[in-house]
Write a protein that binds this DNA or RNA. Structure first.
Lengths: 407, 407
DNA sequence: TCTAATTAGTCTTAATAAAGAACAATATCG
DNA sequence: CGATATTGTTCTTTATTAAGACTAATTAGA
């Protein structure tokens, strides 16, 4: 039961019905391709005539194309299959992280077109934009004309205002109120969209083409790395909040008297489960201390710690187990607050999922109110899926498929 | 950018545009009544002819009626004013609480028709249903024929499945998987809707007619009493979650090593700020101890404590101040998680708002990530507004005004 | 008092949508 | 080969918005 906002509504015009059904048809083709007009009509529960009309409109806009004539199963005329048209079109996803920046080229459905490339992130925005523009142009020229690129999506670890195209605050990069979108768009001559990395990850799951991920109208993506980023999806839409800061579960406390967090507060979930927090526990360091420069601990990563745990290092096992417990306790807060249908979780710690899963699950059960809540589906998203990059791609590729705004 | 769910969508039919515009017109009349057809057309940005057609449809369904001829401001024909038709129609709201049960009769816009009545809650469901049915019938007969009642909405302190009409678990009432809706509907011969009290409070704000409350597409209602109930509103819709348990911020921890909570866990926000928690701190009792039966502490309420604080009792002041601080710290979790445009807060503690506001606000600032978040609007909803009762009423009165489901 | 201007509401016509039916082309099966 | 089933197109019917003409009511001002 949604209320119509009497100060901001959209009346239905002559073309509104058509627009709605057009988008439904497009989404069904996306989800079921290859598909015939007749099957489309059956799925939509409309007459074939209507489906034909919608299809011809989509064809004329080159959003879809007619492929080979299919084999007829029973008797009767053989169907002509329809496909989303991604020929000579591509999308670039960029994932800016504190240490490195990653680039991926995909088609309009987010299917990978080449290998992921990366380079060291230069924290000077202007330099980074120039380097990005240069590398993207080069990569695009390998695949097709640069003009065939529909746009570039960028995932940024920090607070982003996508409407204005600005990075409001990105602590790990030292950026504050930086215009990232427009200079990059000018340098490339292609539209650019930017988004917070947690929300980008959530987007990636919403718009994933694999059928087993779709249908999750309410879900949450938890990304554990240097910090903890969370993207919340409600009714198939990423929750943005009044000031673009929704989803900061990383700074919801486990214990307000807990360890100091990079945000200035104490006891944030992030201060217990981030990679830095886990490593600090292993080295018996305080999280607030500057990271020592000595050779061993400076380069020692969470993967190294997990390797030691697998090799039998008792202290490593204990540290990882406690991270797992804190992880579950924090997930419980998410379940209590939002009761999502599914939680996606990504980050280095998930490479140890087989070790930590029972601990995470039992901690989750410990603090959730109901049996159902404790049993909330948890899906691990491996790093190889590149959720941030795929979310960045969705920023550009998805709007063509989005539901029209109505009422 | 919302994704169309390819497994659950609604295609636009012939009547869909009309349905959308009809609901918009109805909502505008609700928001701006009295209003003329011509003004309606101007607000909707359609020709007067279209508005007239929509209006005549609404008239024929008796959803609205033509009232007096208005005064014309300049020259020209005088307008006929349109109003939501609530003549000979009413709605009953019921608020079941652990100690007492409250009843309120309103019109379709939630305008109070009589005084709030109440009686002691009998925890035996069957007995309570019979008593409720009896009292509602009696109250209705005072105003008009019982048949003119559109329905009864019930707010329940606990986990509710509105679709099935069942109370899944209500600890303070000792109910578990109780069918409340159907027996009451049978006993009354009127449709009944039930909802969790936190979500009901949020509903009340969403559907409030006062123009200064509307327009808050994203908001949160925090109700502090025996427990802490939270209702979350996203895009003008109450967030329900996969298992109807979304919004349980009361059991998000401040400190996992904190005081024992009634839910079995430790350190929940509720265990710091509920009325019981505050009183327990005052009496130096443990929250988990059974409440003593001795005359003084058994009947001593939060209002009494606030009165003592206002009278200068230093201990009372200290206890209330610490509750205020914990309140702000917990609100910070809500702001970090959801970044709502506005927070509504209700409960006995708000009678001391002038005392505690600065403390709540500074605690909120302390743990929010941004200046904006720390400045999130907080609106106190006084007990006299009866948010639970008004939310219960909205369960019945609002569906006629809800946005149609589309795409 | 009469006239012109202005507003409200109705009615007619055109454009565009879905709903439905009919039909041609094509394939399978007996 | 003929009956039957399926795909895709086309045409008619019905419903709805859009644009504008028209009528009625009302007021300001000559």
């Amino acid at each position: 039961m949604r209320k119509i906002n009497p100060h901001d509504f959209k009346v239905a015009r002559r073309g509104t019905s058509r627009e709605i059904n057009r988008q439904i048809a497009l989404n069904l083709i996306r989800a079921h391709q290859p598909i015939s007009r007749a099957d489309l009509a059956r799925l939509m529960n409309v007459r074939r005539g209507v489906a034909s009309l919608l299809v011809s409109e989509l064809l004329s806009e080159s959003l879809i194309f007619e492929g080979a004539i299919g084999e007829s199963v029973g008797r009767g005329r053989r169907p002509t299959f329809l496909y989303i048209d991604s020929r000579q079109r591509c999308v670039v996803g960029v994932d800016i992280r504190a240490s490195r920046t990653y680039i991926l080229v995909t088609d309009l459905l987010g299917r990978q077109l080449g290998a992921v490339s990366s380079f060291q992130t230069n924290r000077d925005v202007d330099v980074l934009i120039q380097e990005l523009a240069h590398r993207i142009k080069q990569i695009l020229s390998d695949y097709m004309e640069v003009g065939a690129c529909e746009g570039v999506g960028v995932s940024v670890p920090g607070m982003v205002d996508p409407a204005k195209g600005r990075v409001v605050h990105a602590p790990t990069l030292g950026w504050r109120d930086v215009n990232l979108r427009d200079p990059l768009a000018v340098a490339l001559g292609i539209p650019v969209q930017i988004e917070n990395s947690g929300k980008a990850c959530a987007l990636a799951q919403v718009w994933a083409t694999r059928s087993d991920v779709t249908g999750s109208g309410n879900s949450v993506f938890v990304s554990v790395s240097d910090g903890v980023g969370v993207g919340v999806v409600v009714n198939g839409e990423v929750l943005r909040g009044r000031h673009n800061t929704a989803g900061e579960f990383g700074h919801v406390p486990l214990s307000i008297d807990g360890p100091k967090c990079s945000c200035g507060a104490t006891g944030c979930w992030e201060a217990y489960v981030s990679n830095l927090a886990t490593l600090s526990r292993y080295f018996g360091r305080d999280l607030s201390e500057p990271r020592p420069r000595d050779s061993e601990t400076a380069t020692f990563s969470l993967e190294d710690l997990i390797a030691r745990a697998r090799a039998g290092d008792a202290k490593a096992v204990a540290v990882i187990n406690s991270t797992a417990r804190y992880l579950g306790l924090g997930l419980a807060s998410i379940v209590n607050a939002l009761d999502p249908a599914r939680i996606y979780i990504g980050g280095e710690i998930t490479t140890a999922w087989s070790l930590i899963e029972p601990i995470v699950r039992s901690a989750l059960r410990e603090r959730t109110l109901t049996e159902f809540g404790g049993a909330t589906e948890i899906h691990v998203v491996p790093a190889e899926d590149h959720p941030r990059l795929r979310g960045a791609v969705a920023l550009v590729a998805a709007p063509a498929f989005a539901a029209p705004m109505v009422a």
